[in-house]
Computed example of a mutant assay.
Amino acid sequence: AALGLLPGKASVSGSVRLGSDQLIGASRTKLESIRGGRIAMIFQDPSSSLNPVIHAGRQIAEAVELHRGLTGRAARNEAVRLMEMVGIPDAVRRFDNFPHEFSGGQNQRLMIAMALAGNPDLLIADEPTTALDATIQAQILDLLISIREETGMAIVFISHDLGAVSQICERVCVMYAGNIVEKCPTESLFRSPRHPYTRGLFDAIPRIDAGRDRLVPIPGTVPQPGRMPGGCAFAPRCGHASELCHNKVPPLLALDDDRATACFHPLSDGATASKPNLMQVQQGVAWA
């Protein structure tokens, strides 16, 4: 939505600003100058984002030419440097390989190299580790963290994986049915989630040190977009809901200096039996 990539029939409202630039409603020329150059994106499935009949290195070089103005040998050298930066072994030789000659994790690294070609201010990573096994996932997360530290680039990391979120994010926005229900620093979220939905996500995570007790699921299902309930969207699944929750949408209000929650009955620190432990969540994901 922010980059104008949705089909023409999509209706987008609200405001997205990059510095002083308003992106919602911006002209096609304006958005094309921002895509790749100031905002880059890594999609969920690298195999569908790379052209299967063009050499992988050439695809990166094309992005370098488009956003940096380099051509010929200079563009090729920069593409090789980016491939080496993201951990592609023997990048000079593999420049002329096709995407199918790389593993899934290496294709994701190629996508990251392509995203970095324009020296963006912001990288949007849309579940970049979903299709990868746990070991490769950890490597990609470490790579994103190191690149962020080296370049100063900001990252918007979209994921359902709480372990990955704990590793890479400084602040978290938890969304349910298309709306933010809780936002706060990552450490605060893992120490004491305050929204019942967030609490439910943590309770449903299997733990290495747990016994044979059954997991605690969130009852019900996510509502269909065309059949949203009145009031709070989570109320039909929430054990803390009152009549107010079923009739009125809770606003996103600040609970303290670093946290906001959209809930009429936010949980206290000791509201449930077990608090989430950041290390346990990370270990659970690493060993899952």
Rank of each mutant, 00 (worst) to 15 (best):
A134H: 07
E150L: 03
L132G: 10
N107K: 15
Q139E: 13
A91T: 03
N97G: 00
P128A: 02
I145W: 00
R93F: 05
S146G: 06
S146P: 04
D121V: 07
Q137G: 07
F98E: 10
N107T: 06
R148S: 08
Q139H: 08
D126E: 03
R94G: 11
Q108Y: 09
A91K: 03
M111K: 03
S103C: 15
A138S: 11
Q106V: 01
G105W: 08
T135Q: 06
D121Y: 00
N107V: 11
A91W: 04
R109G: 11
M114K: 13
T135N: 10
L132H: 07
R94Q: 15
L143M: 01
D126R: 01
D126F: 01
G152F: 09
I140L: 04
P99K: 06
T151P: 02
I112G: 15
E149L: 02
D142Y: 00
R94S: 15
S103W: 09
A117T: 08
D133T: 01
G105P: 12
H100N: 08
T135P: 02
L122V: 15
I136H: 03
E149K: 15
L143N: 03
F98P: 01
R93W: 08
G152Y: 06
L123V: 13
E101N: 10
F95N: 12
A91H: 10
Q106E: 15
A113H: 12
Q108M: 14
S103P: 14
R93P: 03
V92P: 00
N107D: 11
R94W: 13
S103V: 14
A138V: 00
I147K: 08
A138H: 03
T129A: 11
A113C: 11
A125E: 12
T151A: 10
A131F: 06
A91F: 06
A131P: 07
D126I: 03
P120L: 03
F102T: 13
V92F: 01
E150N: 11
M111A: 15
T130G: 05
S146Y: 01
P120A: 12
M114H: 05
I147N: 08
L123C: 07
T129F: 02
N107G: 08
L143P: 03
A134N: 09
Q108S: 09
L144F: 07
H100C: 00
D96V: 08
G104R: 02
L132R: 14
Q108K: 13
D96A: 11
R93A: 12
N119Y: 10
L141P: 00
